[in-house]
Design a protein around this nucleic acid. Structure first.
Lengths: 214, 214, 214, 214
DNA sequence: TATGAATGAGTATTCATTCAT
DNA sequence: GATGAATGAATACTCATTCAT
């Protein structure tokens, strides 16, 4: 329900319509952005609502004109971030592409998300399955995973992916991906295009059945 | 409930091990166990100190006889959990063992930790701890990683591990491992010995240089 | 919903009654009616100004074009209600009528007020207004009571009313009347014309000197 | 449930046990007394919890160690006040006494309550049937009224009381009584023993069937 | 003129910490 | 030492009032 189009420009002429964007929408976005940032940094309980208001440069009361309460805010933030991830993952997705290419595409799209929306990426990892997420948020989670699960299952039956449950393959690859960017965020390493591609090659080895050409 | 034996001696003749009174030690342990459990479930900021006291069946004030404040408590809990992980990882560790065997050993030890100390495992991984960890805790983190980093580096130079920075290999493998058990905790899959071994084999493919026999 | 006709003219040719624009007057009346209703139900402090605006179907800001602040609004509401009471009490009042008839007339006019303006009646009686009423409101209170006080005093000196201070007689009779309608409002009893007349007869006994024929 | 024995000493030797009275009980009483006073003066919504704390000379948080929330506090205050009224009304009550004497007894007991517990008296009138009262409070209300209703009904059937529903008689007499003391509180008159007795005689005329000797 | 979004001071309530017992 | 009642600063949330449109 609270899923809005991204803050990213969608039409080339959007720059000229910015001035006419309703102030209301703008404020809502500023609040969401501030919430995302602070929740990603300090967690849900570690972030005070007035802090969010200050970061968004609005009055504390204004937040409650846009969101029923703090929980509604964190769910809206979660759903916006998940939607952005879903959009990126599903754009230009060709499930009929050769397996290796499909895997590479998805990996690159994940990397794009981690690069374009670093805050959203960290936020999603931190708020995975927390008690304050509502049914809508959890449903969205499944929506994002479903097509990937399908692809994994197909590749397994085609003898391409390892003969493991799709859930397990996804857990290993997603985990490796998260570990990679978390390590970068923690300062353990620096990632460039080449490194990301090397990591992808390494993870393909986890994903694919031994003997399948890479 | 979540009271573990820990590294602390608990010999049957403990009545004679003077210095610290057993009752005192026991209370401290109960507080740490309670804190670990609640922090793992609800996060640092989502857990109230009196709640910890109630779970540990001690008075709220008693916690402050053992720990300077809430932050000291979470650091003690973190350090205890990390120490347990380090202990398990380093026990029976033979850095001279054949690479595949060494990798398998470490993976199995990680799995042992996740099984024996599920609360500690979730506490260490389900939350970002950055904002409240002190220097000691961060130093301990490095201590645990150092020998593994060394092993990775050696295996890389020996042409066994992929030609990637040790940090990157560790991030991918550790990430995959965490992703695996997180998926189990979230209810996406059930892990048994066989599954864990299969996952290990898959991750060895990420770790090892293509062409190296598994 | 609780918009009453009031003392204000509402003739069909109101479009020609210049001076104040009908729309403006109408809005003011709607605000007062809404305020009266909500104050009577939930009390002054329990009623939010935006709620009043919503009930009156005007913008929140509009209230402040008609009333300086919330306190001015409650005083205007109080004064309007008291004025309506005064109007009803003084209409057709014949201080020279026989005592029993005079008493009966006043009692019936009170009943008329309680029936025609139930919200105003409850507003005036269900709450203590001391803390926010201004001098004008308090003065109006006296104005309403003055002629009745005079009548009581005269009847006392004429040997009709009990030989008690007029204030005391008024307090007892007014109190009994309020108690009667409050009991009806609370659901303890149902009042019809006959009951109201019986109550009047009973209260005349309190008012009149023993031995005076009823 | 929250009904405690009055603050009034119940045993002649209580003065010597005062020092041993638990501090906890004392604080609870101070909070209730402060709440009663402020609620009676400014109403429920007009009274801030920290104000109550300040008046009771306790910390704001302390109130929440004794009462779940503000509503629980106002209900406890209501129930304590009602219980005090009930106690006074039922003490030394002889339902077999001659009617005129019974009426006089109840009136005097009401007056005693209004004199001994003026704050409770005003509080009860102001908070009659408000939305924040819970089922326990409302049940207590009925308990207090029930025996009086019974007495009224008996006297009516005995041909002593006017032939009106007991509810109506009670509403008139209770209303008159409240009006009397409200007038005193508002400064319209001063009441002494004699005045109160005169008022009682006047109200007996309302209550009793015409012709019954007073 | 009328509006209603925005505001921030104010409210109820929680919780880390203290301290008298 | 151990306790848990007490505290008050901090938090989530509300609402009287303003002001740009």
């Amino acid at each position: 329900m609270n899923i809005h189009s991204d803050a990213l420009p969608k039409s080339s002429d959007s720059a000229t319509t910015a001035a006419t964007t309703p102030v209301h929408v703008d404020k809502r976005q500023r609040i969401l952005a501030a919430a995302l940032t602070l929740f990603a940094e300090r967690g849900y309980h570690g972030t005070a609502v007035p802090e969010i208001a200050a970061t968004a440069a609005v009055g504390a009361g204004t937040i409650y004109r846009h969101f029923a309460d703090k929980q509604a805010l964190v769910n809206a933030a979660f759903q916006q971030a998940k939607s952005q991830l879903r959009t990126l993952l599903q754009e230009h997705l060709d499930l009929q592409a050769p397996p290796r290419q499909l895997f590479s595409h998805l990996w690159q799209r994940l990397a794009l998300f981690a690069r374009r929306h670093p805050v959203e990426f960290r936020f999603l990892e931190l708020h995975h399955h927390q008690s304050y997420l509502d049914a809508d948020s959890l449903a969205l989670e499944s929506q994002v995973l479903a097509p990937i699960w399908l692809a994994c299952e197909q590749l397994r039956q085609a003898g391409i992916a390892r003969d493991l449950p799709a859930e397990m393959l996804m857990a290993l690859i997603w985990g490796a991906f998260v570990g990679l960017f978390k390590a970068e965020y923690c300062g353990y390493l620096r990632l460039d295009e080449a490194r990301i591609a090397q990591a992808e090659a390494a993870c393909w080895a986890t994903f694919s059945r031994p003997g399948v050409t890479s």
